[in-house]
Simulated scan of single mutants.
Amino acid sequence: MKKTTNFFVISNFNTDPEKYLKYCDDYHIYDQSTDPEIKHELQKKFKKISFVENTGHNISDYFRFFVDHYEKLPAFMMLGKGNMIGRHISEEYFSHVYDNKFR
């Protein structure tokens, strides 16, 4: 599988979003988890992760990324939830669209 140059912004809650990393070269995870064990494991596992307040909304993480990186936003991004594959879409579908680039 080819990794995409699309930058992945992943909003996460009490799950491990590792499956997304096989699809992309670069990413940032915003974690709103409330489970201390999960947070500890994620902190050990990922370098590009921010632990943020649990607002209950993934949109707050995406806007945080836009604000923090406004001067040099990636040309193409995937905004996704840590549990998107399997809950909202199939991995088969995701594998067909993860490299889409639209302006």
Results as ranks from 00 to 15, higher is better:
residue 90 S to T: 15
residue 85 I to K: 02
residue 50 S to K: 14
residue 2 K to G: 03
residue 26 D to W: 00
residue 7 F to K: 07
residue 64 R to L: 15
residue 48 K to R: 12
residue 8 F to L: 07
residue 49 I to N: 04
residue 72 K to I: 05
residue 81 K to C: 12
residue 8 F to W: 06
residue 16 D to N: 15
residue 101 K to D: 07
residue 69 H to Q: 14
residue 82 G to Y: 05
residue 16 D to K: 07
residue 12 N to C: 05
residue 63 F to W: 11
residue 92 E to I: 08
residue 30 Y to C: 06
residue 7 F to V: 10
residue 98 Y to C: 10
residue 38 I to D: 00
residue 11 S to V: 03
residue 93 Y to A: 10
residue 5 T to M: 10
residue 28 H to Y: 10
residue 67 V to Q: 13
residue 67 V to I: 15
residue 36 P to Q: 06
residue 82 G to V: 07
residue 10 I to Y: 01
residue 57 H to C: 13
residue 57 H to E: 15
residue 71 E to Y: 06
residue 102 F to S: 10
residue 92 E to A: 13
residue 38 I to G: 00
residue 60 S to L: 09
residue 35 D to M: 01
residue 95 S to F: 07
residue 44 K to R: 10
residue 86 G to T: 07
residue 87 R to P: 03
residue 48 K to F: 03
residue 12 N to T: 04
residue 15 T to H: 02
residue 50 S to V: 07
residue 17 P to K: 01
residue 75 A to D: 15
residue 78 M to T: 14
residue 43 Q to H: 06
residue 49 I to R: 05
residue 96 H to L: 14
residue 6 N to R: 13
residue 83 N to R: 14
residue 22 K to T: 11
residue 45 K to V: 06
residue 5 T to H: 12
residue 32 Q to G: 01
residue 54 N to L: 02
residue 93 Y to S: 08
residue 91 E to G: 15
residue 44 K to H: 09
residue 69 H to A: 09
residue 98 Y to M: 09
residue 60 S to I: 08
residue 48 K to D: 14
residue 59 I to G: 09
residue 62 Y to E: 10
residue 48 K to L: 06
residue 99 D to L: 08
residue 54 N to D: 13
residue 87 R to M: 10
residue 95 S to Q: 09
residue 79 L to Q: 09
residue 15 T to Y: 03
residue 7 F to C: 12
residue 55 T to E: 06
residue 43 Q to W: 00
residue 46 F to D: 00
residue 22 K to F: 00
residue 7 F to D: 06
residue 88 H to I: 11
residue 53 E to K: 01
residue 14 N to I: 02
residue 1 M to N: 08
residue 74 P to F: 11
residue 5 T to R: 11
residue 96 H to Y: 13
residue 90 S to K: 08
residue 3 K to H: 08
residue 19 K to H: 07
residue 46 F to I: 00
residue 40 H to N: 12
residue 9 V to I: 15
residue 72 K to C: 10
residue 90 S to D: 09
residue 101 K to E: 15
residue 29 I to W: 04
residue 56 G to K: 10
residue 52 V to W: 02
residue 64 R to W: 10
residue 38 I to A: 00
residue 86 G to Y: 08
residue 87 R to V: 09
residue 76 F to V: 10
residue 36 P to Y: 04
residue 66 F to G: 05
residue 74 P to S: 12
residue 64 R to N: 14
residue 55 T to S: 15
residue 102 F to V: 14
residue 67 V to P: 00
residue 72 K to R: 12
residue 34 T to G: 13
residue 85 I to W: 02
residue 9 V to N: 07
residue 14 N to M: 05
residue 52 V to C: 03
residue 42 L to A: 05
residue 7 F to T: 07
residue 13 F to T: 03
residue 66 F to Y: 14
residue 48 K to I: 00
residue 8 F to R: 03
residue 33 S to F: 04
residue 52 V to A: 02
residue 38 I to F: 00
residue 86 G to E: 07
residue 17 P to E: 02
residue 67 V to W: 12
residue 60 S to E: 12
residue 91 E to L: 05
residue 81 K to N: 14
